[in-house]
């Protein structure tokens, strides 16, 4: 891991010094235990502030549409900036999606491919340790040695500490790379749709009840939307006033409209990075719903978002034998 950090800093320095990019997007140390934060390096002399460890959770692709947006002050021709991103498997999948949707110019983005062993979920670690974890190191056999706020140390197993999204990840190594940083990568998950299957097995009334219960927690802060690389609309339908699609308050019908609307817009696009899950301050179980969405798209249309630059997204393609089972049998 430390070795990957050194290689990443070297790669960032080379890219900046050679003028191949203007900005390297990566991580720096955070202000809280088990946290890093997105970091924008524009000067090779501070490339060593980049870190790489098991806390690099944010999906950095979320910043790209904004970084590649033509400034309002520029008239006429504009050449986009050159930007490098330290990308895990999920970040890279999101970038592939953004390239296909013409939000990221392929020629302007440099993907520094970072193989991933699964990132730590601080909330999970706290819950497993029974109190706030202040320090966490990878130990032997994938386990973690943690220290808690009361000074105790203990060993937690991989599945007690690593984020759910990572435990179910099929693409830990980036599928696209301009600069490769070698390093260990976790084995792709064997079972990944367990929760979606449980959900499908429930009676429709139960499913609806569960959905309502989760959505009722929403305070409409839109952290899920803002943290999501796919949510780059200049104006989200939920905030539009002409026409006004939804009320502004926390009426259940308005909460439902937002979440159903956002989820449907993710069909064939969501890469299950769980940025929305991590961002939600109210701990809404969004993962259950995104997993169901991903499973449906994969089973109905054989499409895995962000796996390749070449295949056509299902919403852009029409085949006469497309499945329409969902239309008649919800």
């Amino acid at each position: 891991m430390h070795d990957m950090e050194t290689k990443l800093r070297k790669a960032a320095k080379d890219l900046l010094e050679s003028g191949k990019v203007e900005t390297v997007v990566g991580f720096q140390n955070g202000s809280l235990p088990l946290r890093t934060r997105p970091h924008f390096v524009r000067d090779a002399s501070v490339a060593d502030t980049l870190v790489w460890n098991r806390f690099c959770t944010n999906n950095l692709a979320a910043y790209l549409p904004r970084l590649f947006e033509k400034p309002a002050s520029v008239r006429g021709q504009w050449s986009p900036p050159k930007i490098a991103v330290a990308a895990k498997g999920c970040d890279a999948r999101s970038i592939i999606g953004l390239i296909k949707e013409h939000q990221v110019p392929r020629g302007s983005v440099v993907i520094i491919a970072m193989p991933c062993q699964g990132m730590v979920d601080p909330r999970k670690a706290d819950a497993a340790a029974g109190e706030a974890v202040t320090d966490c190191h990878a130990g032997a056999d994938g386990a973690f040695e943690v220290t808690t706020v009361s000074g105790r140390t203990r060993t937690l197993q991989r599945d007690q500490v690593v984020a759910e999204a990572c435990l179910g990840c099929l693409h830990p190594a980036p599928a696209i790379a301009d600069v490769k940083v070698e390093g260990p990568s976790q084995a792709p998950a064997a079972e990944r749709f367990a929760r979606a299957r449980e959900f499908e097995a429930m009676a429709p009334a139960q499913r609806w009840e569960l959905f309502l219960k989760e959505i009722a927690k929403c305070i409409r802060c839109y952290a899920c939307r803002q943290a999501c690389p796919n949510c780059y609309c200049k104006s989200c339908f939920i905030e539009q006033s002409k026409p006004n699609w939804a009320g502004a308050g926390d009426d259940p019908s308005d909460l439902l409209l937002f979440h159903i609307g956002r989820m449907f817009h993710q069909a064939g696009r969501c890469v299950e990075c769980d940025a929305c899950v991590r961002a939600c301050p109210m701990h809404i179980d969004l993962r259950l719903f995104t997993q169901k969405l991903v499973k449906d798209v994969e089973e109905l249309f054989g499409y895995v978002p962000g796996a390749s630059l070449d295949d056509m997204p299902p919403l852009c393609a029409f085949q006469s034998d497309d499945s329409e089972s969902f239309i008649t049998h919800p």
Binding site: F40, I219, R220, C221, Y222, A223, G247, A248, G249
Partner: peptide
């Protein structure tokens, strides 16, 4: 530099005990 990583969500405002801005909306329900 300080604001570059802000994602633009409302977590800080809605969770803040003193943030107090509001809007008035006419709705039909």
């Amino acid at each position: 530099e300080l604001t570059a990583r802000c994602l633009g969500c409302g977590v800080c405002t809605f969770l803040c005990p003193t943030c107090h801005c509001f809007g008035l909306y006419d709705e039909q329900v």
